[in-house]
Design a protein around this nucleic acid. Structure first.
Length: 761
DNA sequence: TACAGTCGGGG
DNA sequence: GTGTACGACTGTA
């Protein structure tokens, strides 16, 4: 018997061995350990069917232990009688269950389709990068594994990961790259793709010498690793991408799926064994989190790092619920993928009640505080103990906040509570941490990873295919959310504030003489008192402007606004800058305009910035006309929403896809098309074509309009609508003009424009 | 002018 | 193999 200490990098079942665990030892050694692994699943149903299943399993060569038991199904009022099937060789469970479900389709199954890593997490308290102590038996197998920390640790001892980075020198979407750039610690290499033999030999040497734990790539899933594997096979030169020589790289195919009201395209995935491959361009939100966010996702969701890096948030929260259910002995329903049926009218009416949305007072407002409920929906689920099993179907709005005193916390609140608590603790620490502290960045990425999990937990509960979903629970949450916002509004008005706007989980309030955090503190306390939910001061704006609709300027729109906080930072929602399909040149200019205005802390002085704004726009447009704007700054990205043939009118993205298809390059729904607007037909030039765009064909009038439109969004509160702005920036002849440059306009000054203010005296 | 197509949100 | 529904806005026919 010997003991090891270290960090758990990865684990997976292997037929014939059990669970393989990769441990990074405190001594720096990387060890492949093996642990016995059995997997239990359950069947319930008619006695005759269960007897038949029992006989079938006993005659089947896969060794199992069978018994009878009872357990709780949260969707049933009483514990369920079950047949327990323990598959001795856990690696065979998936295949055995598949067969059983085909032969006995009328039985109900539980705990049947659970990832082995989650079973291990529930049984041993393990998780990716968990620091642990491992006991080895005389046979060399793991006899005991003892976690030394939990996913809720704020400052875990960081695992000493060895990271190898491989990037193609150019974007593979725009043509075959000719070289790879490879980095490890302080070392850099550049390897030509040709000849393949030299490339493979060099890479092999690097892999063997560095023996990385993490392979971090650009385009590794869709291009790099598939290409390397192909070259390695063709040239018959083995490349040890896997650390575990007994395993083959696992390829998960590309897919398009529909979620969140839109189509998502996921590229294929290349999963390694014994080390983790993370493609920073295929990892969901990698650019938001960075690596430390991926580690955090893995730790709290318990999903292996390679999966955590690419997971869509729904699967993260689902994994957490499954582990919690296993820990509590609650049955995990089999996740049958149901066909999506269109919702009935009745369901449409029911789901109609979403978050509270208010009409803001348009115009420019000074000294406004924005206060937001912190993780509102998850906080409600915990505060009101809302879970599929605790929710009574006919609960009315306003009644949801009275949990029965003795009611035990439900599955969802128990899953969320530690996550919420950790997030609050991170926020508390961030609040009084100096800006230079290097831990800030880590805490921030952790908190934003949690944010995702928390936000999606709510949406997921209303999702018909969720294992622990229940529409009534979903509705109870939104009902309480609306109620809480209304109570917050009452509290604000009782304390003498004017409520300018409310949006789902935040409100904007103003009061004469209130301009520092302490002025709003009593309101925060009063709201928490009245709602039971934590709320915080997002910030105090020097000024903020809520924009009206472009279609009809009399109509305010709830989520188009921008403003400057007292710390100088900008907050922007809903406008061009925030849209993925706005070219960088337009977005950057719009941001510059806002920064120009942000120099004014007193909104009454904003009109004084107009001449500078107009000069800026004239300069940008002169850049455009004289082809001084780099073409990549003008690229527009749009997503394909459907197969090309299904378009009735071809969007620019569809026409871009047609250009790719003409060259035999397949496109799929959800894929992002990148293109330039060009003159004539078809009006776009695909950015990822081998032939570069001719700068002379650039649709300059179109880009001019895009820029002026974005600029008018920013300047319209000062009375500058798009037409007026165009007149000031461009003369009738189409050339850039200004009163200074155009003799006929010399002496003209900006007219007095009607700006709309609401400033408390 | 009507309608088809794309986007945001939370950070 | 996992988020809903909807309104704002733009471009096309």
């Amino acid at each position: 018997m010997s003991e090891l200490r270290g960090w758990l990098l990865d684990l997976y079942p292997v037929a014939g061995s059990g669970m393989v665990l990769w441990l990074i030892g405190e001594d720096g050694m990387r060890r492949r350990l093996v642990q016995d692994f059995s997997a239990v699943f359950y069947a319930a149903g008619a006695a005759a069917q269960l007897r038949a299943l029992w006989r079938w399993l006993q005659a089947n060569p896969v060794p199992v232990r069978l018994s009878r038991t009872r357990r709780r199904d949260i969707f049933q009022p009483h514990p369920v009688d079950l047949m327990s099937i323990e598959v001795i060789e856990g690696a065979s469970q998936e295949r055995l269950f598949h067969e059983v479900s085909q032969i006995f389709p009328s039985l109900t199954y539980y705990d049947a389709d659970i990832r082995p890593a989650l079973r291990h997490a529930a049984a041993h308290g393990t998780f990716p990068l968990c620091r642990c102590q491992v006991g080895l038996g005389a046979d060399g197998k793991v006899s005991r594994i003892l976690p030394l920390d939990t996913p809720w640790e704020i400052d875990p001892l960081p695992p000493p990961l060895r990271i190898l980075t491989i990037q193609p020198e150019t974007d593979p979407r725009r043509g075959e790259p000719s070289a790879l750039v490879v980095r490890f610690q302080q070392q850099n290499w550049r390897f030509d793709m040709q000849p393949p033999r030299a490339l493979l030999v060099n890479l092999r040497a690097v892999l063997e010498r560095c023996d990385p734990d993490l392979l971090l790539t650009d385009w590794g899933d869709g291009w790099l690793l598939p290409r390397l594997v192909e070259l390695s096979k063709e040239g018959n030169i083995p490349l040890p991408l896997n650390r575990d020589p007994q395993m083959e790289i696992q390829v998960l195919p590309a897919r398009s799926y529909s979620t969140y009201g839109q189509v998502i395209y996921r590229d294929q995935q290349m999963l390694l064994f014994g080390r983790c491959h993370i493609d920073s361009f295929n990892a969901m939100l990698f650019h938001d989190y960075g690596l430390s966010g991926v580690y955090e996702m893995g730790r709290v969701s318990r999903l292996p790092l390679q999966l955590a890096a690419r997971l869509s948030p729904g699967s993260g929260i689902s994994a957490m619920q499954i582990v919690k259910a296993l820990e509590l002995g609650i049955l995990v329903p089999w996740h049958k993928q149901q066909a999506e049926f269109p919702k009935t009218t009745w369901q449409m009416i029911r789901s109609d009640q979403g978050g509270m949305v208010y009409q803001p007072l348009t115009g420019i407002h000074a000294n406004v505080a924005e206060i937001d409920f912190m993780s509102m929906y998850p906080s409600i689920m915990v505060h009101c103990n809302i879970s599929p099993e605790t929710t009574k179907p006919a609960r009315k709005p306003g009644e949801a906040d009275q949990p029965e005193a003795e009611e035990e916390a439900g599955l969802i609140p128990q899953t969320l509570a530690p996550l919420l608590e950790k997030r609050l603790e991170l926020k508390r620490r961030l609040a009084d941490m100096p800006t230079w502290d290097p831990r800030r960045r880590i805490y921030k990425t952790q908190a934003s990873a949690h944010k995702w999990l928390l936000v999606t937990c709510f949406g997921y509960m209303g999702y018909r295919n969720a294992r622990f979903g229940r529409i009534e629970a979903h509705e109870a949450v939104t009902a309480y959310g609306r109620e809480a916002l209304l109570r917050a509004k009452e509290a604000a008005e009782d304390l003498g504030f004017t409520v300018l706007h409310m949006y789902v989980d935040g409100l904007w309030v103003q009061r004469q003489g209130a301009d520092k955090p302490a002025d709003f503190q009593p309101l925060l306390e009063e709201i928490t008192e009245r709602t039971g939910l934590p709320i915080s001061l997002e910030g105090i704006y020097h000024w903020v402007t809520f924009l009206p609709s472009r279609q009809d300027e009399r109509v305010p729109v709830p989520n188009r606004y921008f403003g400057v906080f007292q710390d100088g930072s900008l907050k922007v929602r809903g406008i061009e800058l925030r849209r993925r399909d706005t070219p960088a040149w337009v977005a950057e200019t719009q941001l510059e305009l806002m920064e120009l205005l942000a120099k004014c802390t007193d909104p009454m002085q904003l009109p004084q910035r107009l001449p500078a704004a107009i000069t800026l726009l004239q300069n940008r447009l002169a850049d455009l006309r004289h082809h001084r704007v780099p073409l990549d700054q003008l690229v527009v990205s749009q997503k394909l929403s459907r197969p090309l043939a299904e378009y009735t009118s071809r969007s620019p993205a569809a026409r871009c896809a047609a250009q790719l298809q003409a060259l035999g390059r397949e496109t799929r729904p959800g894929q992002v098309m990148r293109f330039l607007y060009t003159l004539g037909e078809p009006g776009v030039h695909c950015w990822d074509l081998p032939s570069p765009a001719d700068p002379a064909s650039l649709d300059i009038p179109r880009y001019t309009t895009l820029l002026l439109r974005a600029a008018s969004t920013i300047l319209s509160p000062l009375g500058m609508d798009e037409g007026t702005l165009r007149g000031w920036v461009i003369s009738r002849s189409g050339y850039l003009a200004s009163p200074q440059a155009d003799p006929s306009r010399r002496g003209e000054t900006l007219p007095l424009l009607q700006a709309s203010y609401s400033i408390p005296k």
